[in-house]
């Protein structure tokens, strides 16, 4: 069987070159100043101090985190009931609804985000419907609402699927035991179902929060050119102003912030029942 071992070797080399080296490059650029020549390299923390001491950048960072948190919270409160309802349906119906929710995720995110540009216009379909109720027109495009909506639309399937998986994996006999012991529906939900499905919620949070913090085409398309999130700053630094050192520092700071948030989320969830996740 050892003869098969070598088959992994080419990819290990590729991985070091294509995955590890680029990451090291980001770190190198983040901690050095301009001058791409190896000979003139100078280590500095300037890129970071510039980022963290600039009021404009800090407000962009705050806004990005705020949007990501709001998106994540909405995805939990929207995704949980949907996942719960689907998980309690018949096998056939489950398959159908999960397919229905998975299908759009296979379709280009940019295309689906672009679709909302038309829907959210002042004279778009939503305002047309609101007109019948005598409301509006309400300006929706190029607002925070539009950006959050676009993110929820794109990312909530991940939340639903994670929670759904956790709910269907759950041992149903726990619920029977709870009701045998006299728990009513609300109690058995709060004491049994909810804690057992938390690992799904946690991995759902990871899958929503991470792309929400770093997204740059959703704010551009639905928030308009003036709506800047941290991803847009990185895009500008790399593709317009060409300050790769500063851009790398921002990306690194963002990655670290994301890692810390993930760590905190997992720490908060130190419920002993949550350990069955690895299966």
């Amino acid at each position: 069987m050892r003869q098969f071992r070598n088959m992994a070797m080419p990819y290990i080399v590729w991985m070091v070159v294509m995955i590890v080296l680029p990451m090291l490059l980001i770190m190198l650029y983040a901690f050095t100043d301009q001058g791409n020549d190896v000979a003139t390299i100078r280590f500095t923390l300037e890129n970071f101090t510039r980022f963290f001491s600039d009021k404009v950048f800090m407000s962009v960072l705050k806004r990005s985190l705020y949007i990501a948190v709001v998106t994540t919270v909405i995805c939990i409160f929207l995704g949980y009931p949907i996942a719960y309802v689907i998980a309690n349906r018949s096998e056939k119906s489950k398959m159908f609804w999960i397919l229905l929710i998975t299908l759009p995720t296979w379709i280009n995110m940019l295309v689906r985000t672009y679709a909302w540009m038309g829907i959210l216009q002042d004279e778009g379909i939503i305002n047309w419907l609101l007109g019948f109720l005598g409301i509006g027109p309400i300006t929706m495009i190029h607002t925070t609402f539009a950006v959050v909506l676009g993110m929820v639309y794109n990312f909530v399937p991940f939340m639903i699927l994670q929670i759904y998986t956790a709910l269907t994996k759950m041992d149903k006999s726990f619920l029977e035991a709870a009701s045998d012991l006299g728990a009513n529906k609300v109690q058995s939900f709060l004491r049994v179902t909810l804690p057992l499905s938390l690992p799904g919620v946690i991995s759902g949070i990871t899958l929503v929060f991470l792309p929400a913090v770093s997204s740059f085409f959703i704010p551009k398309l639905l928030g308009g050119g003036q709506y800047v999130l941290i991803g847009n700053v990185i895009e500008t630094e790399f593709l317009t102003s060409g300050d790769w050192n500063f851009g790398s520092a921002i990306s690194l700071a963002m990655a670290v912030i994301i890692m810390i948030s993930m760590y905190i989320t997992k720490k908060v969830d130190n419920d002993p029942t949550a350990n069955g996740k690895g299966e």
Partner: peptide, 16 residues
Amino acid sequence: PIMNPEIVTAIGLLMF
């Protein structure tokens, strides 16, 4: 690459 934000992977490759 799966865990990293896509934009981080993207700029890494760009510089590489």
